[in-house]
Design a protein around this nucleic acid. Structure first.
Ligand SMILES: [Mn+2]
Ligand SMILES: [Mn+2]
Ligand SMILES: [Zn+2]
Ligand SMILES: [Zn+2]
Lengths: 150, 150
DNA sequence: AATCAAATGCAATATTATTGCATTTATAAT
DNA sequence: ATTATAAATGCAATAATATTGCATTTGATT
């Protein structure tokens, strides 16, 4: 998960997208990249409480537009953000992987390399993209539960 | 779509779930049942502008808990509500159908009878439910676009 | 070192959602 | 029918989430 990246990777990333390398942006990037799950907007906000709320919104929007991160709403409608995997670009998202929402810890997992089988829609529907959601219990929470009941 | 139901159907429905038959509730039911697509919270609110905002929230929550309607977030994170199809009950939702979000008219379609093929998750993930989302252009909007360009 | 566009921070406002409490209403019991 | 009661509604207050405009700061370029 979450392969380790250093400061310079992030600076390059911003460079590539013609975004200025600012401290708030680098901090947001390193926080998101360090986790194996998506990060919720509330979490980002409380961890980065010294960054202005509005700035955070603008950073997230910019990153999303550039195809650096993607947004996913969890079961409660809360916005979560995760790094994009390679093939996303400016206004071109291809995060057609499964999003697993743990009902216990609320974490959202991006499960890549899970090619969803082709689905055919009724006549007339022109599809641009799919996302598959699943909810249930994640490995960590399953283990914890097992430990307790033992 | 949206099979016609009369007042008495709705009253029975409320009865069945031990909910009082009140005017706000009946109006919400008939509005939602009359449409072939889901209804967004903002739409409900503006159409039912004489019903108190808080009452609306409580009605929607109650209906959702009873398994009368289900909530689905569209691409913008806006809450949309649609009638449940038969097999949902108190705290027991089985709306595992495809939700199609038209990027033009923003409507959310519940496409039932679209059995999604089984997906197997990585080791450790215990799944309770799936939802498949698709986005693109709905039949109506496709037709309109075709008409214009002709 | 100077310049300029981009990014940030702050204030104001908008939208969406929740909580507590007083009042009204639907239902059931009398 | 009348009354009793719990449920539902409406209203006020507050919280949480999001957007806009503008003054100030900062990163990149010359
Ligand atoms: Mn993802
Ligand atoms: Mn649905
Ligand atoms: Zn979990
Ligand atoms: Zn449409």
């Amino acid at each position: 998960m979450a392969q380790t990246r250093n400061k310079f990777d992030f600076e390059d990333l911003l460079d590539k997208h013609h975004l200025k390398k600012t401290s708030p942006r680098l901090r947001v990037l390193s926080m998101m990249a360090s986790k194996s799950t998506a990060t919720s907007q509330p979490d980002l906000e409380s961890v980065m409480n010294d960054i202005d709320r509005v700035t955070l919104y603008r950073i997230l929007n910019a990153f999303e537009e550039k195809g650096i991160i993607h947004k996913v709403f969890d079961l409660n409608g809360t916005a979560n953000y995760a790094m994009c995997s390679s093939n996303c670009g400016e206004h071109h998202h291809h995060d057609e992987h499964l999003h697993f929402n743990c009902t216990v810890c609320k974490n959202v997992y991006c499960l890549d390399d899970l090619h969803l089988p082709p689905v055919s829609l009724p006549e007339g529907f022109k599809t641009e993209g799919f996302t598959l959601y699943a909810n249930g219990t994640c490995p960590k929470c399953t283990k914890k539960a097992a430990a307790k009941s033992a």
